[in-house]
Amino acid sequence: MLLEFNDIDTYYGDLHVLKKVNYSIEAGEIVSLLGGNACGKSTTMKTIMGVVRPARGTVIFDGQPIEKLPTSERVKRGIAPVLEARRLFPRMTVFENLEMGAYLRKRGAEFDQDLDRVYSLFPRVKERRNQVAGTLSGGEQQMVAMGRALMARPRLLCMDEPSMGLSPIFVDQVFDIIQQINKQGTTIFMVEQNANMALSIAHRAYVLQTGQVVLSGSAAELRRNPMIREAYLGEMQVPAA
């Protein structure tokens, strides 16, 4: 297992956001986390990154408990976030944003290799490298956000809503690239509202409802599950005649 949540409870003040949550993600997988608004998806991401600390339970990364480690140590061990709503540093250039992704790493041959890789995955990012990030279109910002995360050379990429606010063509492109990144060896844990797209590329998925995992399984199984079809894939359940 690359990442495990064991009975995680997370609170914001009195609000009990994650309730005894368990996930386990194998190296090489794409795992998707589905759920409606305010179900605890973003809190899951923040708990992985260490921005929010769980009250109970353990988070295991690569065999080691990490729930007490500071965020920078988690980044060093190979977890990188692609943040929701494309939270780039808006007044820094695209290149400076990519540099921030590699903040804890030395400059040198590896940095240059990763930069080339990001530029070949996203030629558009290369074109825009000297532009201030806040002036890019939504789709371009999403590409920079993904590129920035890849600059950390992560083993686990945590993506928060990669399709949010993107046009359908961009969504297709982004999901293609997610699959490419995964095939190149990076494990992906992806929070996503667009269940259709998420289940089309994920190997497995968890469904989160008001802070609890209510369903999990392979993407194929979940696509056939009547509850998923009704709640997330937008299909009406046809009553048996």
Partner: peptide, 23 residues
């Protein structure tokens, strides 16, 4: 400088800067 860029990043989005590994 590296620390100077971290300063600007922190000023623009402290939580995101932290998630890049900035102390």
């Amino acid at each position: 400088s590296r620390l100077g860029k971290a300063m600007r990043a922190t000023a623009q989005d402290p939580e995101a800067a932290r998630m890049m590994g900035v102390d």
